[in-house]
Design a protein around this nucleic acid. Structure first.
Lengths: 192, 192
DNA sequence: GTCATTTCTAAGCTATTGCTTAGATAAGTA
DNA sequence: TACTTATCTAAGCAATAGCTTAGAAATGAC
């Protein structure tokens, strides 16, 4: 063994995620990362290999972040339709309370980079798969609790809700609060 | 008067739009624009002032583009629910036929830049306003044709459809064809 | 304490960024 | 034909991009 790192990898990765989230991939320079992560370029490259690798790890970190800060209510064992509705309605509130809503890091990246890079595309796909499964589990709970008909096509429903969620992630950056509300109302009325 | 320009402004602007659409704003260099537009940097700057101005003009050009190539069926005088349904179903087909679907330039930009720059944000907002109004007019036609109930809240409906459209623009870059189909099916079933 | 190994600082690398400029070229006016 | 004005080519500007390297500093093993 030898000298220890003077920083926590998870901690500086969290900072990197914030920078990418705020600025986007291309607009984030390694100098800015260096400043915000609090470590210099040598450390960034020796620990995270490249800007792209750091970004992909940031996308994974983001998944962990939203599990705790966005999807926690839906990840409860007994989460049901009511939780789903509350979750979606949070978008309209966010639009009002946060001056400059940053949107979803993964949706932003889909817009900026799309499928340009296969490694990044895989990370995007993994994230959306996780979101879909989370929603699907809630719908499954709802069926079991009798909130939804037993022959409801919950796979179809979860794809639909994922799609609307992607729309809301764009809309919350570009539309008015009332428009967000309308989208959420219409969508939830469609789940029955 | 003096020497004339050796190119059509509208034509090279169309090329610029294509480059931004394919690559995104930050990933598009002036050297690349120079190459694809077929004019050199002096001409770009003397005619379009800056990269940002050129981009904003490209966003406006994109609006004109989609009027002709995407929304033409919805802009017909008698466009109705059937046209709306066909329009939405085109997304799933696009996903299958176009290897690397580029998505919507404006949605992509919302993801990449959001409200970072007020001038660009205004252009995004204008675009989404146009789309909403286009949809709203179709719904109005549908009411008048008796396809929709006279007390349907068509403003709410059009916000909803705009939101789903934004979602599809993301989803078509990141989801599977079947998922797109599910989103479209569920959405259209909700308009009645 | 000595050594091997890793991390640190700080400077520097080449390539590219958005943008500008000097001078040649073209075109309408008189 | 001479003059004015605008557009062209091609080179060049400072600043910054992502990334690397040389040498100093720290740390656990022996």
């Amino acid at each position: 063994m030898a000298r220890n790192k003077a920083y926590s990898e998870e901690e500086v990765l969290g900072k990197a995620m914030e920078v990418f989230w705020k600025n986007g991939y291309e607009a984030t320079s390694v100098r800015l990362l260096e400043k915000e992560m609090g470590i210099n370029q040598f450390s960034i490259y020796s620990t995270f290999s490249s800007k792209k690798e750091l970004f992909i790890l940031s996308l994974k970190k983001y998944t962990e972040y939203v599990k705790v800060h966005r999807f926690h209510t839906l990840l409860k064992k007994d989460a049901g339709l009511k939780d789903l509705e509350t979750f979606f309605h949070h978008f309209a509130r966010k639009k009002r309370t946060e001056q400059h809503y940053r949107g979803c890091l993964v949706v932003n990246t889909t817009g900026e980079l799309g499928a340009k890079d296969p490694d990044i595309a895989k990370a995007l796909s993994n994230y959306f798969g996780f979101i879909k499964n989370t929603i699907k589990q809630v719908l499954q709970n709802a069926v079991e609790a009798g909130e939804l008909s037993a022959n409801a096509d919950i796979d179809k429903y979860s794809n639909y809700l994922l799609g609307v969620l992607q729309g809301l992630s764009v809309g919350a950056k570009a539309l008015e609060e009332q428009q967000i509300k309308d989208i959420v109302d219409m969508t939830m009325a469609n789940i029955k």
